[in-house]
Amino acid sequence: MSELRDSCVPTKSPPNKRETLKRILEAARREFVGKGLADARVDDIAQTAGVTKQLVYHYYRSKEELFACVLDESSAQAMNELVTLELDQLAPRAALRALLQRMVQPYQEGELSALAQEGIRFHESRATPRNSFTELAPRLRLKLKEALDRGIASGDFRADVDPDMLLAVAALATTSAWVNRYTVSTLCGLDMASAPDAEKWGRFSVDFVLAAVERERSSQHPLTLPASLVSPPGSD
């Protein structure tokens, strides 16, 4: 197996090369989102990017390497939005809510949900030296720990919470529905491809995590769906 090169779009490359690589990655992202890794065709990616197939293989040694770069670019964007989120001016509860909501947002609004399932399988079966998720994870852990510590000091949050375990559970609780749509559909009847259903999951999962760390249970985080998101009987 070939190793993933150090950078998908090298910043020190000439401007015309960087632009070409960006076009290839954008075309590849659309192809992988629409067809998945197995059915995506490099010929179609090249045609959409306005380059030759040979040039795609000059920059990316295989379709799998190109897919790994698409995953890394998407992960880097989502993680950067998380680690640069300004939380210091927010009260602890609001800060943690904002962080959790930002975890969910890329899956609700972007193409990340379409790549999520295949991306998990891809990373489980391959070693990719460049991975923005693992590179930025320490900064994300620190950001959550700071919000948690402020909440403990203010009396909003319980003190017996491991921040790393909380982060892992929070990430799974909020975003895994897009990775395992079948389970969510079977157990609670939500279609994660539907914007209203995705919003229901996002609200409930964020409130669920917040309720778990509160020192005293608060009605601010009810573990029921808001009336505005509950479909009336017979509407489905």
Rank of each mutant, 00 (worst) to 15 (best):
231 S>D: 15
217 R>E: 05
203 R>T: 12
150 R>M: 07
89 Q>T: 11
8 C>A: 11
109 E>C: 00
76 A>M: 05
41 R>S: 04
145 K>T: 10
1 M>C: 00
135 E>S: 07
134 T>L: 14
68 A>K: 05
214 E>R: 11
95 A>H: 10
210 L>F: 10
124 E>A: 14
135 E>C: 04
36 G>Q: 05
96 L>V: 14
156 D>Y: 15
213 V>E: 04
91 A>N: 07
123 H>R: 14
164 D>A: 14
59 Y>E: 07
232 P>V: 00
101 Q>T: 10
224 T>E: 08
59 Y>R: 06
68 A>Y: 05
84 T>C: 01
195 A>G: 01
14 P>D: 10
26 E>K: 13
123 H>S: 15
91 A>F: 11
204 F>S: 07
164 D>I: 13
180 N>Y: 05
23 R>H: 04
154 S>C: 04
33 V>F: 02
95 A>R: 06
105 Q>E: 04
168 A>Q: 07
63 K>C: 10
179 V>G: 11
215 R>G: 04
73 E>W: 01
96 L>F: 15
178 W>N: 06
14 P>G: 12
40 A>S: 13
11 T>G: 01
226 P>N: 00
99 L>I: 05
133 F>T: 09
201 W>R: 02
235 S>K: 08
103 M>V: 00
168 A>K: 00
129 P>M: 00
190 L>C: 06
142 L>Y: 01
162 D>A: 02
54 Q>M: 15
72 D>Q: 06
106 P>D: 09
19 E>R: 06
153 A>N: 03
19 E>H: 02
75 S>G: 01
109 E>D: 12
11 T>F: 03
140 L>S: 04
9 V>Q: 12
185 S>I: 00
166 L>T: 13
163 P>Q: 12
26 E>L: 13
161 V>C: 15
114 A>N: 13
184 V>S: 08
142 L>Q: 02
17 K>Y: 02
115 L>H: 10
210 L>W: 04
22 K>W: 07
157 F>T: 13
219 S>H: 05
137 A>P: 11
95 A>Q: 14
211 A>P: 00
11 T>P: 07
11 T>S: 09
62 S>T: 10
222 P>T: 15
104 V>P: 05
202 G>E: 00
125 S>V: 02
134 T>M: 12
169 V>G: 03
45 I>P: 14
25 L>P: 03
167 L>Q: 14
79 M>V: 09
123 H>F: 12
88 D>W: 00
90 L>I: 12
190 L>T: 03
140 L>P: 11
164 D>M: 15
214 E>V: 11
165 M>W: 04
187 L>D: 03
199 E>G: 02
119 G>T: 10
10 P>M: 08
172 L>F: 04
208 F>H: 00
149 D>G: 09
200 K>M: 02
224 T>F: 11
60 Y>G: 01
44 D>L: 02
176 S>N: 13
186 T>N: 09
194 S>P: 04
229 L>P: 07
61 R>T: 09
55 L>V: 13
179 V>K: 02
26 E>W: 13
80 N>C: 07
59 Y>N: 09
235 S>F: 01
169 V>F: 09
61 R>C: 02
55 L>T: 13
93 R>F: 11
98 A>V: 07
83 V>F: 06
11 T>M: 01
52 T>Q: 03
160 D>H: 00
159 A>I: 05
46 A>E: 01
189 G>C: 10
71 L>I: 11
155 G>I: 02
169 V>E: 10
148 L>H: 08
203 R>K: 03
84 T>M: 08
51 V>W: 05
